[in-house]
Simulated assay, not measured.
Amino acid sequence: MSKLLVKPTDGQGRVTHITPQNAGWQYVGFDLHRLRPGDRVSEETGHREVCLVLVSGKARIAAGGEEFGLLGERMSPFDGVPSAVYVPGGSDWTVSAETEVELAVCSAPDPEGNLPARVIAPSDLSKETRGSGTNTRYVTNILPEDQPAQSLLVVEVITPGGHTSSYPPHKHDQDNLPHESLLEETYYHRLNPPQGFAFQRVYTDDRSLDESMAVEDGDVTLVPKGYHPCAACHGYDLYYLNVMAGPRRTWKFHNAAEHEWLLNAG
């Protein structure tokens, strides 16, 4: 199995645990919790900021000394948009599940901890359609660069079955602004129906990194560098939640030169 493919553990609780240490990089952390009604999870943020994303389900969330009440409007990541909560460094958070819940904990460095905790409501989220034809996909910006945070960028995407995504292939692995930013990235994948699979390739120009992975429901892929396109198989829609962070909080990418012609194709 590819070193870039992370499978969830069985059962409930924290089923995925990705840290800069076990990923072998510097910035991005990602945990996935599966909670039953009545389950509760709490953490301190330390020197990291967190974006709590209710991938599915409803939960009561408290953070930074504030009670934000019952959040969550969808029971599936393929049905509507999420609710989320931003939590700064030097704080804490608690999530208490009212229903079955899938909770993503996205994290990145925040040594300052000077922003307030806040709810990111579904009505706050911007949506866009990218691509055309069988490269069409639907994007929801959860924590984009025009919203307050220190390091984190968080977005989710629905790619219909038979379509490609993160395509034409692009990369963001050079700290070379304004042309390109250096951002590590995780992809948390879900499939609808869940028995489906998709494909993701992560590769560099010189092919010193070149991994192709069959992605199943609940898998996470790591993108430390390089291009990282996805393909959703016919009959199975693909959801993914992206977490990005690097030394500068901006998304400036570079397309693979040999595939840029696709941007002007009908």
Score class of each variant (00 low, 15 high):
residue 211 E to D: 12
residue 223 V to A: 03
residue 227 Y to P: 03
residue 216 E to T: 05
residue 200 Q to S: 11
residue 209 L to S: 04
residue 201 R to V: 01
residue 188 Y to I: 03
residue 191 L to D: 02
residue 188 Y to H: 13
residue 192 N to K: 15
residue 198 A to G: 15
residue 206 D to S: 13
residue 224 P to C: 06
residue 226 G to H: 11
residue 205 D to A: 13
residue 217 D to S: 03
residue 217 D to E: 01
residue 198 A to P: 04
residue 205 D to L: 15
residue 198 A to Q: 10
residue 222 L to Y: 08
residue 216 E to K: 07
residue 213 M to T: 10
residue 195 Q to R: 05
residue 207 R to F: 02
residue 189 H to Y: 07
residue 197 F to E: 12
residue 198 A to Y: 02
residue 189 H to D: 11
residue 220 V to Y: 12
residue 226 G to Q: 08
residue 219 D to V: 03
residue 190 R to Q: 15
residue 192 N to Y: 09
residue 209 L to A: 10
residue 217 D to A: 12
residue 224 P to I: 09
residue 224 P to W: 08
residue 215 V to C: 11
residue 191 L to A: 10
residue 186 T to C: 13
residue 215 V to R: 07
residue 203 Y to A: 00
residue 204 T to F: 09
residue 198 A to D: 08
residue 213 M to F: 02
residue 217 D to H: 13
residue 202 V to H: 02
residue 220 V to F: 10
residue 227 Y to F: 14
residue 189 H to F: 08
residue 186 T to W: 06
residue 207 R to N: 12
residue 211 E to F: 09
residue 205 D to R: 15
residue 191 L to N: 10
residue 205 D to M: 04
residue 198 A to S: 11
residue 214 A to W: 05
residue 226 G to V: 09
residue 217 D to W: 01
residue 190 R to L: 08
residue 200 Q to V: 09
residue 219 D to A: 04
residue 189 H to G: 01
residue 190 R to F: 05
residue 205 D to I: 09
residue 219 D to W: 11
residue 188 Y to C: 04
residue 194 P to L: 01
residue 186 T to E: 07
residue 201 R to F: 00
residue 187 Y to R: 03
residue 217 D to I: 05
residue 218 G to T: 02
residue 205 D to K: 15
residue 215 V to W: 03
residue 197 F to D: 04
residue 222 L to M: 11
residue 204 T to A: 10
residue 204 T to G: 15
residue 186 T to F: 12
residue 186 T to I: 14
residue 202 V to N: 01
residue 190 R to K: 15
residue 200 Q to P: 04
residue 219 D to I: 09
residue 225 K to A: 13
residue 221 T to E: 07
residue 219 D to C: 11
residue 227 Y to M: 02
residue 212 S to D: 04
residue 219 D to Y: 14
residue 198 A to N: 06
residue 218 G to P: 06
residue 189 H to V: 05
residue 210 D to Y: 15
residue 192 N to S: 13
residue 216 E to H: 12
residue 208 S to F: 13
residue 187 Y to V: 01
residue 192 N to A: 12
residue 221 T to I: 07
residue 205 D to Q: 14
residue 186 T to Q: 08
residue 194 P to A: 13
residue 214 A to V: 14
residue 189 H to S: 13
residue 225 K to G: 03
residue 203 Y to V: 00
residue 190 R to G: 11
residue 204 T to C: 08
residue 199 F to E: 01
residue 208 S to I: 09
residue 189 H to L: 00
residue 191 L to I: 09
residue 193 P to Y: 11
residue 194 P to S: 07
residue 201 R to K: 10
residue 187 Y to W: 03
residue 227 Y to W: 02
residue 224 P to Y: 06
residue 227 Y to D: 01
residue 203 Y to W: 04
residue 210 D to K: 15
residue 190 R to N: 07
residue 208 S to M: 12
residue 221 T to Y: 07
residue 190 R to A: 03
residue 188 Y to A: 06
residue 224 P to G: 05
residue 197 F to R: 11
residue 196 G to T: 01
residue 217 D to M: 06
residue 209 L to I: 14
residue 207 R to S: 06
residue 195 Q to K: 11
residue 204 T to W: 07
residue 192 N to P: 08
residue 221 T to C: 13
residue 212 S to W: 07
residue 221 T to H: 06
residue 202 V to I: 15
residue 204 T to H: 15
residue 211 E to G: 10
residue 212 S to M: 14
residue 187 Y to A: 02
residue 211 E to A: 14
residue 213 M to V: 05
residue 227 Y to C: 02
residue 202 V to A: 00
residue 221 T to V: 12
residue 207 R to H: 14
residue 222 L to F: 04
residue 223 V to S: 04
residue 217 D to V: 12
residue 203 Y to R: 00
residue 207 R to L: 06
